[in-house]
Amino acid sequence: MKQILTVDDSASIRQMVSFTLTKAGYQVTEAIDGKDGLAKAGTKKVDLIITDLNMPNMDGIQMITAVRKLPGYGFTPILMLTTESQAEKKDAGRKAGATGWIVKPFNADQLIAVVQKLVK
């Protein structure tokens, strides 16, 4: 079963990502911020990461930068799920190594479709 890591300081967002992807047949691990996300990615290799941008302790951009340096994460798809829609933020995310950008709220069907495409 493919492993997904969802990183968000909002419990409800984590639950919704988990609910949506579990139903689609994925195993989802939750992390409460960038620091937690980085630790969990380091402990167990995941197939895809969905992360928020603004989080306490470590934000999404910092986490992506750090994750990309972890062994085996060079090409792991990382999607940013945030309320931000500014071009400069997206650009920062892309430069840090994000694979895609979703402005909250996500569309469940489309999220599943993209995840299926990325972790095939």
């Binding site: 968000d8 909002s10 409800s12 967002i13 639950q15 919704m16 609910f19 949506t20 603004n54 309320t83 909250k104 709220p105 996500f106 569309n107 469940a108 069907d109």
Partner: peptide
């Protein structure tokens, strides 16, 4: 039902936007 569930999923996420 899938549509209604997607609607709730989106609405619950809106809480996070409201919180921010």
């Amino acid at each position: 039902i899938a549509g209604q569930i997607a609607g709730v999923v989106a609405a619950i996420q809106s809480h996070d936007i409201t919180r921010q």
